[in-house]
Nucleic acid binder design. Structure first.
Length: 1133
RNA sequence: GGGCUUGUAGCUCAGGUGGUUAGAGCGCUACACUGAUAAUGUAGAGGUCCCUGGUUCGAGUCCAGGCAGGCCCA
């Protein structure tokens, strides 16, 4: 038996297991790479997962996408090495370890040594590796698990160091600061995690100030001033932290927010002013009464402030306006660097009209937003030099103003030292500042205000947003290049590239590398105490040499690596290394670790230990042709890969990237262990098999859309697609084995000798190859899957095979039968190839079932079927010469005519078994007539009718209807379309006839004359009097339901065949068994046998068919109006 | 709050450049078929195309503004 047959329905889970074992045993994955040696490389980067948690169903999704395109490129003949990788550093692992040990960050180095702690992290991070490896295999994700890159290994870290040094040498690495939550009382920065502790946000009552910033009258602001009006003009801005006002260096407005200019008086000094604020917030500061109040009568101290709106404008109009510093040099406040660029109005995307004035006071040293927009707009921060000449903000690390702050120097910003505040004369710094501003006429409103403010969870004291030292990569220096090169990347979906990623690049700030943690890649920078000398170490070798120097300088006692000891570049070991500066000073390592995203972004280099070795290997595998990860990686891995590639290689890191969406539960909720709606990938795969799972995920929604995961969808895919394909194969195998047919690549029935049906499905197959290749090429696997599915279920199974069944049942291996086998064989093997990237196991199963029997011949002939695995084959090319659009068109006509006729039979209760004489198809052009004519035989066979007759116009019996062609008419008549359309729908039969015959029709509508052309209307057959009629668009079919005696008898014959076939089947006979039949006497049956005996005997494989008055031991056959006993015996040869 | 994204039948999804009767599969109902049969065919029920406004002779489609879900930031 050449083709394996399966009596039971296929167990898809078992197929997965079996194929997997076979792959392993025969090293198919390895061969899929090695067999492409010397061919062009398709470079794929594996985004490293972290193995500190169990994998979920969403990982199956992400990895299916990766796998599809790697397998596809392999099928195209490219070599696709796939080095696996593990992400092993970072905060989630540290938090997990802390939780398990029951410690906090503060305990590290005290209750547990850094050494032990990091050892725990190292053990924890690979805890689920076995599960991950298991899932990888079972889902059929082909990636090299034997030689992965692991980010905690010394070589990997060393590569990161080398890259950091390259950046350092290019001047891209610098020490600066960012604004972070900081607790002066505890003297430490707080992580967002710490800030999210319960109880940290509390309601407090603070003094708040609406400050007046005096606008400088110049070209930029002139439009605000009335030409002849010298009254001072101020911008109002509100703050709940008045102590930051002396550090103000900018004001931010909303680009599209409407603002007004209001003439009024300062409530504290009573002097006339004009102020700018958001239109929406006028009511907050001015009363209805004041709108009417007299300016002339106003006296200082009056409750009601008169006011009038003088002008309105958009935020954008204010940008660039300069204003005077609130606390200037004249009153003893310090000058600062770049001061000439400060005190300007800029746009801030965070500005709202929720509260305040719709204008935000910017102090870059004390707010994260402030810092960011200031940096983006070139607004300097107010920094002053301390005693050692080091720059510092106006508040020191203990929470008090520095000495240079004039009258406020040395004051506590908040009560961090616990001093006594109970005295009647006691004033907080905020209050003192507000009082001074009232006097200066720079306060427009001062009030107490209750709001929530974060507090340190350990000291209960307010948190400050404060500049803390960090190391940065100067990504802004290459911003334009990042944007430029991003435009060359093919993003799937494109919107992620232009939108989410593009906008991120447009608003780029420098990459903050520093992390104050323990388990990660240490920053390889050593500095002297005063920070004047530093060195960036780029390799272990260089570090050893520097240690030797330090030993010579007696800064270190000995070189711990002198005798070739294994180097661990983690903390705490690197912290114990001290180096010597050129001037002989000791240098200490900057204590930070680097952002873990640097680790993963460095994988194109570090996975090969480049740049320390493997230069050629790196060049060959850079940049990647393709990467794929979740869309949440946009600012993570996608960015760090891009940033490093641009800065290090002036290149993209990847040419094509797919950002896939989330996997939600079937109700659209996020999956979580807590909610218990997480789907177990192992259970899913073992129950439904990896192929149906993968196919469902890919075919159901495009990978970049979120997927609502519902196992009902998998069972549907299983039944509808895999079940149909399996049935089609089984059908093929059953008959091919009976006939002893085995396909070959040579000596096939020539294409031009094939039947219409065969040439049609092969034409469809070529179109499918073309289409599916196109979709894979465009990184759109969903469309590829849907196209394959449609072909298999609708075209191949439900049309070609259904209509071809008789060809397989009958007689000897004639050329037509051979052609039927060969056609089906070609379709099945091609489908196996096309589906292989998405459903690798089932495709393998199908391919092997179809080709194992001819492997030896295949190998001898070097045929396409020589490879033992479908994944080692080369994907077929579409043969354009076999695509026949006209054939595809007429087959579609046949399908539609069949559908219409079935529907007519149904209406008149005439089962398909009852032959009918003819159908009528009205045709208006020769092409349709010719097209239908060529498929007449198919239609007749499918519908069990004798003839297709055509009806042309000349018959005059057709009743036609007409419909306006709105597209054409609309372009021509525009607004008049309505009346013209209405008129067309009222066209008479004569008018229709006129326009058909003469090619035009003139009609009068509302006094105007219109000339209509045939293209202006769509004419279709509506009815055929006296016939049963069905229509589908322009296609109409009429059925002749007249039954002659002969037709009736043939119907009876068919009924009899049907009953006998059932009997055969019920008796458990094999298809090829011959029988002898004896029937009870019944007039209608006897008449039918008289007329169609040969046909019946042939159909049921009967050597004899006789009637007898008495049937003993028979089975009763039920017909519509009578029952007849029958006996069936197997005929022995 | 910002950026991106999604919203079409009970469910999952299609619906180039605007064209009046919006489709498919599943599910449901009925009938038929029965040598591919846990398949198949035909018919039926099922829609405020998220809402509001605008452009247009005409909007599921284009524009503006909302609403709801999701992701990433703040």
């Amino acid at each position: 038996m050449s083709y394996p047959e399966y009596k039971q329905p296929l167990n898809y889970g078992q197929v997965g297991t079996d194929i997997l074992a076979w792959w392993k045993q025969n090293s198919i994955f390895e061969k899929s790479v090695s067999s492409r040696e010397g061919q062009p490389t398709f470079v794929f980067y594996e985004g490293p997962p972290s193995a500190n948690g169990a994998p979920g169903i969403h990982h199956v999704m992400a990895r299916t996408v990766k796998d599809i395109f790697c397998r596809y490129q392999t099928l195209l003949g490219k070599q696709v090495p796939r080095k696996g990788g593990w992400d092993t550093h970072g905060l989630p692992i540290e938090l997990q370890v802390e939780k398990e040990l029951g410690i906090t960050k503060e305990d590290i180095g005290k209750k547990i040594s850094i050494e032990e702690y990091n050892q725990r992290c190292r053990e924890t991070v690979m805890r689920f590796k076995a599960q991950w490896d298991d899932l990888t295999e079972k889902m059929g994700y082909w990636v090299d698990l034997d030689d992965p890159y692991i980010t905690f290994e010394p070589e990997y870290i060393e590569s990161c160091w080398a890259l950091l040094k390259k950046l350092y040498d290019k001047g891209f690495l610098y020490k600066g600061y960012t604004i972070q939550p900081y607790s002066p009382a505890a003297g430490t920065g707080l992580s967002s995690h710490e800030l999210n502790q319960p109880g940290t946000y509390r309601d407090v009552m603070d003094t708040t100030v609406v400050a007046q910033f005096k606008v400088v009258r110049d070209a930029a602001s002139e439009k605000l001033f009335a030409a002849d009006d010298a009254a001072p003009l101020h911008i109002l801005a509100w703050t709940t932290t008045p102590w930051t006002l002396p550090a103000n260096t900018g004001l931010a407005v909303g680009k599209n927010i409407p603002y007004v200019l209001v003439r009024t008086f300062n409530p504290y000094t009573g002097t006339p002013v004009r102020v700018v604020l958001a239109e929406a917030l006028v009511g907050k500061y001015f009363t209805e009464k004041g709108k009417e109040a007299s300016f002339e009568d106003f006296k200082s101290g009056d409750k009601v402030l008169p006011w009038r709106i003088e002008n309105t404008f958009k935020g954008a109009d204010l940008v660039g306006i300069k204003y005077e510093r609130l606390f200037g040099h004249a009153t003893g406040f310090p000058a600062f660097e770049n001061e000439e660029n400060a005190f300007r109005v800029i746009v801030g995307d965070f500005v709202t009209t929720e509260d305040g004035t719709g204008i935000v006071h910017i102090s870059p040293t004390f707010g994260a937003d402030d810092f960011r927009v200031a940096q983006q707009n070139g607004i300097p921060a107010l920094m002053v030099a301390d005693d050692e000449g080091k720059l510092s903000p106006i508040v020191d690390r203990t929470g008090r103003y520095v000495a240079q702050m004039g009258e406020f120097g040395g004051r506590w910003v908040k009560n961090y030292d616990g001093h006594d505040q109970s005295g009647a004369d006691y004033k907080t710094l905020d209050e003192s500042i507000a009082i001074r501003m009232k006097g200066d006429g720079t306060a427009f409103k001062v009030e107490k205000y209750e709001h929530t403010y974060p507090h340190c969870w350990r000291t209960d004291k307010p948190v400050l947003y404060y500049p803390l030292d960090s190391w940065f990569i100067k990504t802004t220096a290459v911003k334009d290049r990042l944007i430029e090169l991003n435009k060359t990347i093919n993003w799937q979906p494109a919107s992620t590239g232009t939108g989410r990623f593009g906008n991120w690049l447009e608003n780029l700030v420098d990459w903050n590398l520093s992390r104050s943690r323990y388990w990660g890649t240490p920053l390889p920078i050593w500095r002297t105490q005063d920070g004047t000398e530093e060195i960036c170490i780029g390799s272990i070798e260089q570090m050893k040499q520097e240690i030797d120097k330090a030993v010579t300088a007696e800064i270190m006692t000995h070189n711990p690596y002198a005798n070739g000891e294994k180097v661990d570049l983690h903390r705490p070991y690197v912290d114990d290394i001290f180096l010597v500066s050129p001037s002989g000073q000791p240098m200490y390592r900057e204590p930070d670790l680097i952002d873990v995203w640097f680790d993963s972004g460095a994988m194109p280099y570090a996975q090969w230990h480049y740049p320390l070795e493997n230069g050629e290997k790196f060049q060959k595998n850079f940049p990647a042709d393709f990467i794929a990860e979740g869309v949440d990686q946009t600012r993570g891995w996608f960015f760090t890969l891009h940033a490093l590639a641009v800065m290090l290689e002036d290149s993209v890191a990847y040419k094509n990237v797919m950002a896939n969406g989330l996997v939600l539960d079937k109700n659209g909720n996020k999956m979580s262990k807590r909610l218990g709606n997480a789907v177990d990938p192992f259970a899913t795969i073992s129950q439904y098999g990896p192929d149906a799972t993968r196919w469902y995920m890919i075919a159901n929604a495009q990978p970049w859309d979120n997927l609502k995961f519902d196992v009902a969808g998998i069972t549907e895919v299983q039944r509808r697609f895999f079940g149909t394909l399996f049935n089609t194969y089984s059908f093929y195998a059953l008959y091919a084995n009976l006939d002893g047919f085995q396909a070959t690549e040579t000596a096939r029935v020539p294409h031009h000798e094939l039947s219409e049906l065969d040439r049609w499905i092969l034409s469809k197959l070529q179109s499918l190859i073309k289409e599916v290749r196109g979709h894979y090429d465009a990184y759109d696997p969903t469309k590829a899957a849907r196209a394959i599915q449609d072909f298999v279920t609708d075209q191949l199974s439900n049309w070609h095979v259904r209509l071809s069944r008789r060809r397989f049942w009958k007689g000897d291996l004639t050329p037509d039968k051979r052609a039927a086998y060969e056609t089906l064989q070609e379709c099945l093997t091609t489908v196996a190839q096309l589906m292989a990237p998405i459903a690798p196991f089932f495709a393998e199963w199908l391919y092997q079932n179809m080709t194992d029997g001819l492997r030896a011949a295949g190998v001898a002939e070097s045929s396409p079927f020589a490879p033992e695995s479908v994944h080692l084959t080369l994907l077929v090319q579409a043969d354009e010469t076999r695509i026949d659009p006209a054939l595809e068109e007429r087959m579609e006509l046949a399908q539609r005519i069949s559908s219409l006729t079935h529907s007519l039979r149904k209406k008149s209760v005439l089962k398909v078994r009852q032959p009918l004489q003819r159908i009528l198809v009205p045709v208006f052009n020769d092409n349709t007539r010719a097209q239908v004519g060529k498929v007449e035989d198919l239609i007749c066979a499918e519908l069990n009718i004798k003839h297709v007759e055509f009806l042309d116009d000349t018959s005059g019996v057709l009743v036609k209807s007409v419909k306006p062609n709105f597209k054409r008419l609309g372009q021509q008549y525009g607004p008049k379309l309505k009346v013209v359309g209405a008129r067309i729908q009222q066209m008479t039969a004569e008018e229709i006839s006129t326009i058909e015959k003469t090619g035009q029709l003139t009609v009068d509508i509302e006094g105007e004359t219109y000339t209509l052309a045939p293209d202006d209307v769509e004419i279709r057959t509506q009815d055929l009097p006296g016939w049963l009629v069905a229509t589908d668009g322009a296609l109409t079919v009429a059925l002749d339901v007249t039954l002659t005696d002969e037709l009736r008898q043939e119907g009876v014959a068919r009924e009899l065949v049907n009953r006998l076939q059932n009997l055969r089947k019920d008796s458990g006979l094999e298809v090829q068994d011959k029988i002898r039949v004896t029937l009870g006497q019944q007039p209608e049956l006897q008449a039918a046998v008289q007329a169609f005996g040969d046909y019946i005997r042939e159909e049921v494989q009967a050597l004899s068919l006789d009637f007898a008055p008495e049937i003993s031991d028979g089975t009763v056959l039920e017909f519509d109006d009578y029952s007849v006993p029958a006996r069936l015996e197997v005929a022995t040869a």
